[in-house]
């Protein structure tokens, strides 16, 4: 047990001390923040106002709660995955610089090494994502707080699940990488691509129907939807309380991906949790399998 703990400590320390890996992991959230402060905030605000009936006027605080909820949900949904990938790049770096060869010369089991990478990535990513969640909640508290205690707790659960998903996905993908160049390529693809396909940069509902259908097969989509539901749920409920017709609120839920439709069937929250949880289990199983059938040349 001590061996695993010391390996985990080594991996976590290396991630936080390697400025390259650490700052790369924060690129996507930074892009989102820049996009938001430059124009997305106004786009979101205008979009909400356009969808409201003429007689309904929302307070600035409620509008802030809606827009802020959408921002933080996008930011957290992406960060949980990109940070996990960057943290798990240590596994690839160890291959690229020959460290793994040295580690495998010792009698330590391959499974212990793999577990060490997985848990270290999980802890590093959770630390960063919980810190990001705390900052996001402080931000929402400033611009319009409508979240209940259960919303916050579910949001934390969503973050944990997404981090588990990101860690498992990155473990499977990074297992196949061996060089610094591949790290850069995958890092770029994940940072740029995942934000789009999970609906962080643009709501999935704004994509073509064909693309929307493809995206509903990706488990990460449901993670984003869960985070968004809990980040925006309080503000949307408040709209109903203030007399906004529930049909209007429902259409907003559809527009911002709180509701996801799988072949026209609305996916329930419990199903989303089930999909995400099952995906994590399957990816972890694949990772274990990959390690166990790893062949020597």
């Amino acid at each position: 047990m001590n061996t695993v703990l010391i390996l985990i400590k080594r991996n976590i320390k290396l991630f936080f001390k390697d400025k390259g890996m650490f700052f790369t992991s924060l690129i996507t959230p930074a892009i989102l923040l820049v996009l938001y402060t430059t124009f997305l905030s106004n786009v979101y605000r205008d979009s909400f106002e356009m969808n409201l009936p003429d007689m309904v006027k929302l307070s600035d605080e409620l509008m802030g709660g809606l827009v802020g909820g959408q921002l933080i949900s996008s930011l957290l949904a992406v960060s949980c995955i990109t940070v996990a990938f960057c943290s798990n790049f240590l596994m690839v770096q160890d291959k690229a610089n020959g460290t793994i060869k040295d580690l495998r010369i010792s009698p330590v089991k391959v499974s212990t090494l793999a577990f060490g990478y997985y848990i270290a990535t999980l802890i590093s990513t959770l630390l960063i994502c919980f810190a990001a969640t705390a900052l996001c909640l402080v931000y929402v508290a400033f611009i319009g707080w409508y979240m209940s205690v259960s919303d916050v707790l579910f949001l934390l659960l969503d973050v944990v699940l997404l981090v588990l998903f990101g860690t498992a996905l990155s473990s499977v993908i990074n297992f196949l990488l061996t060089s610094q160049g591949q790290i850069s390529a995958v890092g770029t693809i994940i940072s740029a691509g995942y934000g789009f396909i999970c609906g962080a940069y643009m709501p999935i509902s704004s994509f073509s129907s064909g693309l929307q259908r493809v995206i509903t097969f990706l488990p990460g989509t449901y993670g984003t939807s869960l985070v968004r539901t809990h980040a925006m749920g309080g503000a949307l409920n408040e709209m109903v309380n203030q007399g906004v017709p529930s049909e209007v609120v429902d259409s907003i839920r559809d527009a911002v991906d709180c509701n996801i439709y799988f072949f026209n069937d609305k996916v329930s929250i419990s199903s989303m949790y089930l999909i995400l949880g099952t995906s994590v289990a399957v990816l972890v199983a694949v990772y274990i399998l990959m390690n166990s059938i790893r062949k020597k040349v």
Partner: peptide, 25 residues
């Protein structure tokens, strides 16, 4: 080529290596 972890201290490097052989505490 040295395979030490450059960002870690000498102590951390050796502690990690020892742990791989079950040498701890």
């Amino acid at each position: 080529n040295s395979v030490l972890d450059s960002a870690l201290s000498v102590y951390d490097n050796l502690q990690c290596r020892a742990a791989l052989y079950g040498i701890t505490g």
